[in-house]
């Protein structure tokens, strides 16, 4: 009884809502597990659409969804020998520092040139990785 309340809380989820969320979860988990990232890029638009969240809510809630996925991937990758302490320590420190600055800037949503550059970088990097 209590669990079912926790599962819906507030608005009652229809069967379609539930199915949509389960499929989204499967997709986000598959991408994030296989690629070690990018789950958030899928989760944000899905959360915005399905749970009708605004940009900030979707971004924040996506972190909550992705964090446990990253934890299980971190364990599985590390157990399989994919771990480099020399790389992960500076990258993690940088990530936290950059994240704090980025979050402070989030009060103003990123200007359009940042979004365009980001898409261009993804496209270039993607092509380079496919043909390189």
């Amino acid at each position: 009884m209590k669990m079912s309340v926790l599962l819906r809380r507030g608005r009652r989820l229809t069967q379609t809502d539930k199915t949509g969320r389960i499929l989204s979860g499967l997709g986000v988990g598959a991408a994030n597990g296989l690629f070690g990232g990018g789950g958030g890029m899928i989760a944000v638009p899905l959360l915005s659409a399905q749970a009708r969240l605004n940009a900030k809510q979707a971004h924040a809630t996506a972190i909550l969804v992705i964090a446990p996925l990253c934890l299980v991937s971190a364990i599985i990758y590390s157990v399989n020998g994919y771990f480099s302490v020399q790389i992960v320590i500076p990258a993690a420190i940088g990530n936290v520092a950059g994240g704090l600055v980025g979050a402070a800037l989030l009060d103003k949503l990123p200007p359009v040139w940042v979004k365009i550059s980001f898409v261009a970088v993804m496209l270039a990097a993607g092509i380079r990785m496919v043909i390189g």
Binding site: S24, V28, G29, A30, N32, K56, L64, V65, N80
Partner: peptide, 29 residues
């Protein structure tokens, strides 16, 4: 800040965790 919206989120997180485990194993091999 009140940005976390957890309503019905278990329906996303639980399947995501399951596929994440499977696909992390797939990535490893």
């Amino acid at each position: 800040a009140g940005y976390l919206k957890t309503e019905g989120l278990a329906y996303v997180i639980i399947p995501a965790l399951i596929s994440s485990v499977l696909f992390s194993l797939l990535a490893s091999v």
